[in-house]
Each structure stands twice: as structure tokens, then as C-alpha cells.
Design a protein around this nucleic acid. Structure first.
Lengths: 330, 330
DNA sequence: CTGAAAGCGCTTACAG
DNA sequence: CTGAAAGCGCTTACAG
């Protein structure tokens, strides 16, 4: 269509439009180059990506799977992915799997049916069984947020973050502590819990098994898990919830038991979501670089797609101390 | 490829695969139909969507623009959109515009370059100027969350929701109230504020202009806006923040002024996000059907794409009364 | 320096 | 009942 209006053959137009600035002389005469570029600009011409994909066997599309986009942590990671994708000329598809294996499988099939060039999983199970199948199909992919097996991943150094919280609570004199540990299949909760437990172990304190309880990652889940911890009538002096939403749920359960967060029971979270600092009792938490994690994840995948060797990255967390662990009175 | 293995022509295979169950006899003999279907199943065959799009001039792709996916309200709406899209055989692309007009334009261009069949805007400005341009280009679209002009939209009945909060606070005896009103370009904040003000006006109380202040829609923005309301040293007895996150920010500002939420200053929000009920002081708020809004938005667009006439929908809100407006003591 | 051809994987109207 | 052709909009290696 551009070609028609210029009286040129489409192949000439295509060559011009794809020439790198310094190689335009091999595409056409400078007068032709000039004419083509001007009209393309004027008309806002954009090549049909379906035709391009069909011809080049490359879609420049990336499929992203997350447990839930309504979890601000994953949404923020995805924002990083999308931002970096734009800079690499890639487009992204996201979809929710709710951590349900059947959905992970079905969504992966759907994404692959769209002929993506690669995938990013934000919902990896620690056992990596399903990822093995994906790898066997030859699909290039990376993980974000959670690690699994030896697949390339970009995560927060969750173990270190857990240690930081442990050391912080130890320094405040808490000896009887509990952990709202998240889902058993997610490396985030596993590593954060382990780092926390190790900090205590090194101080000579073994946290008993009944002080650990799994939980969903949302507020409701944190509430229920904390309820289980408090039901015995022997409350710990501090609770580490492995993410901020679970910590907010812990706030609710502590409140329901007539206890005050900060004064009676210290509560710490993980992620430093934007709400943490604004809560009526500001939440002590570990800042994890969520947006950056998404960016790096996309870049790792981009390098993988170029055929480069890549290795996993672990980003540095930072402890944010606030009133939920330090308030004497709320 | 299927065709090769079956010794059939691709056109035959294509016909079989596209025949409706009751018309398969017009596609091929029942034996052939059976063979094609069996092998397609076995191989997990999925037609290349780029080829199909190119041929049919329909991409079955929908572009979705939102201010930010890390806003749980929009993320939840998008989940509804995506869910319904799956049921209609459509795929969706989302992208963030941060409510910045230049980004709205750039992202729209990008989405259109991908040859989507239609768009859903979750980031409409009330003046609808930009949407006019999009309409002029002949792109089918609907709005969700915010209304604008006469374009088809699916929203919460925000005006009614605002009235509900007004009537609730009136019934509690609050006469000096303030509003954290959100961004001036968003119909959500505008309509919620108007409903609230009208409830007061009908009770004979004109809320003075200095008791309204605009704000971003996040916690930080709500904090800053409430700070402005409280700076004069003459605090209102109740504050209506037009969304939950701004309300949580209001919590922070109230706290910083040595006042207690619920006891000294009543605070109400909007949306009933999952956190509202879990806060140390549970938040009174208006439940808006976010997921449903997304579903209906997609369905409205699907009907529009079928060439049907469509009209806007307004979903019913529900008041959730909690301690942030009723606690005598926190 | 530019054009013409082939072909990516489909769908559809037509022929036999 | 099935095949063959045309064509969607591109890109690329080749010819002239």
C-alpha cells in the first residue's frame, strides 16, 4: 500500500524500512530512502505483525504466567517485565494461574498456541516437575519471583531477607517467635522461613515446629494462619509473616484476640508494598526490588533468546524497621 | 503437516477442523472427519494464529489500557476481562498508561499496530478528547471503571455509592466532613464525591469547598491529601476517601496528627478491596463489583464486535460498615 | 539500484 | 466427498 502510492515494489519498501541507519545505502538510493521514510511517517505505517511473524517465524511475543495479577507483588513485577519488553521491541501476554497445576498447564498450552518466542513464569513450584515438561518441549523460559531446579531465575535473596528479620527480632529480645510461612510449594516462603530459622538457630534458639504454619499469600490466608498460631492460647511475642499481605491478615487476627500489634505482639512482613508504611501501625518489612526483578527477568529471557548463556540472579533485600516491631504502645 | 501425515489436502483438514459439530458432514466423510480429529488431538495441533489472522483479517485480540496494573482495583477488573475473554475465544493484551496522555496515545498506537479487533479503556479522562480520536479512527472500544462522553461503559454506580457513604455518616451525626476526591479527570472520584455532597445537601448541609481536595488514587496520595485537610488545625469529624488506598493513606495522616481513626476521625473508603476488612481498624467502604465489571466490559465489547447495539451498564454498589466509622475507641 | 519470485500457514469459494 | 488455487502482508535471497 505504501509501495503502491510510491510506485515502488513492496520489496524495496521493506528493504528500506528494515535497513539500519548506516546501511540504508544498500537498500535503495538515498532519494528513494527519503521518499519511503517520509510517507511511512506521514501515514503512521506499521507493518502487519501477523504477516511478519508468519514470514520470519518469530513473533516477538513473550508469555507471562503469574499466580494472580491482583497480588500487588506480581503486578509490580509484571510492570517491570512490560517496561523492559517495550525497550526490547517485545510484547507481553500475562495470564493468571492461581497456582493451580491444571491451570498452569492449560495456560501454558494457550500461550504456546499463540506462538510466543519465550515465557516467563512467576508461579513456579519448587519441585519444578511441570517446568521440566516445558523445557523438554524446547521452549525458552526464565523464572521470576520464585526459583526452581536449575532453571534461570531472577529472585530476591529471600534467604538473606529472612535472616535480616530474624536478626532484627533477636536484637529486640524476642525468643518465642512464630512464622506464617506461605505456601509450601513456593521458594519465596521456603527461603524466607529458612533464613529466619537459621538466624535463630545460630543464636542457639531452635524454633519449634508448631511455631511454623503454612498460609496463602493474601490477607485472608495470613489471618487464618495467625488464628491457628494464636488458638492454642500461648501467643508468641513476635510473628514473621513471609509477605506483607499475610502480615496484614496477622494484624487482623492479633486484633481479634484483643492483642495490640507492636505493643503485645510484634509483626513483620516481607516486600515493602506501598501500603506497609501507611498502615495505622506501620509495618516492619523487607524491601524486595519487585519492579527491578521484572526488568531483569525480561532481560535474562532476551539474552536467552539471543542464544547467550545466562545464569540466575539474586537481588539484594533491605530491612525497613517500623512501629509494628518497635512500638511500645500503639 | 497434519494434512501430510493423513495424506489429505490442507483445505480438507481445515474444513473439518472448522466445521460445527452438526455440519461436519458437509466438510468430509465421517471416516475422514474421525481421522482428522483423532490425529489433531493426538498431536495437540493448534492452527498458527498469525496465519489465521492474516487470512481472516481478524486477530481475536483485545487491547486493554489501564492506569496501573499494580492498583488492585484495575488488576481485579482485568482479571474479570481476561476470564471472560477466554470464554469468548479472545486473547487480551494489557498495558499501563499511568493516566499520562502521552502514554495513552503511544500505547494505543502500539496496541493498534498489533491489529487488535477492539480495545477496552480503564483509564478514560472525563473530557473524552482522546477517545474521540480513537472513535474517529473507527476502532471499536468500550470503557470500564470510568465513564466518559457517550461511549459505552461498564461502571459501578459511583454516584449511588457516594450517597450511601454520605447517608451513613449523616446517620452517625457527622456534620463537618471532608472528601479526599481522587483525580479531577476520573469519573469515579467525580461521581462518588457528587453523590456524597448531594446526600449532605439534601440534609441541608453544604460542604464547603475547602473540605474537598483532589488526590492521587494510591496510599501516598491519600496521605498527602489528608495532610492538607488536617494542616489547618481544624479537623473534620469524618473523611470520605474515594478509594480504599487513599483511605489507608488517610489512616496514616490521621495517625501522624495524633488522632485515632474511628474514635477521633471517622474514615470511609471505596471498593472494598480484600485488605479493608483486615486492617487493624477495619475500614468502612463501598463494595464495587470489580471482577464483574471486567467480565461485563469484555462482554459488551464482544457484542459490539458482533455488530450489536450496546448501551452502558452501571453496577450496584453495597455499603460495608466497619469500625473505621463506628468504633468509639480503637 | 530495484524488481520479481517464493513462501510462511492458513481459509474460502470454486471445480470436479 | 475432496482437491487445487488464490491470497492475506510481509521478508529475503536472487536476478538483472
Amino acid at each position: 500500500m505504501l509501495a503502491d502510492r510510491l510506485g515502488l515494489h513492496v520489496s524495496t519498501v521493506s528493504r528500506v524500512l528494515h535497513a539500519k541507519p548506516d546501511e540504508s545505502h544498500r537498500a535503495a538510493s538515498s532519494a528513494t530512502v527519503e521518499r519511503v521514510r517520509r510517507l511511512a511517517d506521514e501515514l503512521g505505517y506499521r507493518p502487519n505483525p501477523h504477516a511478519t511473524s508468519l514470514r520470519t517465524q518469530r513473533s516477538n511475543l513473550i508469555g507471562v504466567l503469574v499466580p494472580r495479577l491482583s497480588d500487588i507483588v506480581l503486578a509490580t513485577i509484571y510492570e517491570g517485565i512490560e517496561e523492559a519488553a517495550g525497550e526490547h521491541g517485545l510484547s507481553t501476554f500475562v495470564t493468571n494461574t492461581r497456582d493451580v497445576p491444571d491451570f498452569q498447564r492449560a495456560r501454558t498450552d494457550m500461550v504456546l498456541a499463540r506462538r510466543v518466542d519465550g515465557m516467563i513464569f512467576g508461579d513456579a513450584y519448587i519441585d519444578a516437575g511441570f517446568l521440566g515438561e516445558v523445557a523438554a518441549r524446547g521452549v525458552p523460559f526464565v523464572l521470576v519471583s520464585r526459583r526452581a531446579g536449575d532453571y534461570p531465575s531472577v529472585t530476591c535473596d529471600d534467604y538473606l531477607g529472612g535472616r535480616m528479620v530474624g536478626e532484627h527480632l533477636l536484637s529486640l529480645g524476642h525468643r518465642d517467635v512464630a512464622v506464617v510461612a506461605g505456601e509450601p510449594y513456593a521458594s519465596t516462603g521456603i527461603d524466607r522461613s529458612a533464613g529466619f530459622a537459621d538466624a535463630y538457630a545460630e543464636a542457639g534458639i531452635e524454633i519449634p515446629a508448631h511455631r511454623f504454619t503454612h498460609s496463602r499469600f493474601d490477607a485472608r490466608g495470613g489471618h487464618e494462619a495467625t488464628e491457628r498460631l494464636l488458638a492454642a492460647g500461648d501467643p508468641p511475642s513476635a510473628i514473621f509473616a513471609v509477605n506483607d499481605f499475610a502480615a496484614i491478615g496477622a494484624f487482623g487476627a492479633v486484633r481479634d484476640h484483643g492483642l495490640r500489634v507492636g505493643a503485645d505482639v510484634a509483626v513483620a512482613g516481607f516486600n515493602d508494598t506501598p501500603l506497609a508504611a501507611e498502615l495505622p501501625v506501620p509495618l516492619t518489612t523487607v524491601r524486595s526490588p519487585m519492579h527491578e526483578m521484572g526488568r531483569r527477568g525480561l532481560e535474562l529471557l532476551a539474552r536467552l533468546l539471543q542464544g547467550e548463556e545466562v545464569s540466575s540472579e539474586r537481588l539484594r533485600p533491605e530491612l525497613m524497621v517500623r512501629a509494628s516491631t518497635t512500638a511500645v504502645l500503639t
